[in-house]
């Protein structure tokens, strides 16, 4: 699992939730520009916030990841904004997220 989240507290929480659900938080980054520098990406899924350190780049990151075959889920406090880019992701979760929300969203990805 890959996380793109610029708030370290929330990133930490996400990592723990991912572990609790039996997945591995492989990499957590705070910007799209950092993500583009990653040479080998082996994530099965990405959790992405809309606003990152380098601006409103979450949607771009989702598009970029989709091009690499990695499905994404938005985890955001700006649901309305996220809806505009709904076609780039497999799900949208509103902050604050719970373990149940995350589990449900991830179950939509698993079949692949």
């Amino acid at each position: 699992m890959l996380c793109l989240e610029d708030n370290p507290l929330i990133a930490f929480h996400l990592e723990q939730l991912i572990e609790d659900l039996g997945h591995v938080p492989m990499l957590t980054l705070s910007s799209f520009s950092e993500l583009k520098k990653v040479s080998e990406l082996s994530a099965d899924c990405a959790l992405i916030d809309i606003d990152l350190v380098d601006g409103r780049t979450g949607p771009e990151a989702a598009k970029w990841l989709r091009g690499k075959g990695v499905p994404s889920i938005f985890v955001t406090g700006q649901r309305e904004l996220a809806e505009d880019y709904a076609d780039r992701v497999v799900g949208i979760l509103s902050k604050p997220i719970s373990q149940e929300d995350l589990e449900e969203a991830l179950s939509m990805i698993k079949p692949n």
């Binding site: 708030n7 507290l9 930490f12 929480h13 723990q16 606003d51 406090g77 700006q78 902050k95 604050p96």
Partner: peptide, 20 residues
């Protein structure tokens, strides 16, 4: 509004993580 939501999300995370 954006900032308040962010802070509330931070506080929620702190609470959840502290609780466990």
């Amino acid at each position: 509004n954006h900032r308040v939501k962010n802070i509330l999300a931070s506080v929620t995370s702190i609470f959840q993580m502290t609780m466990r």
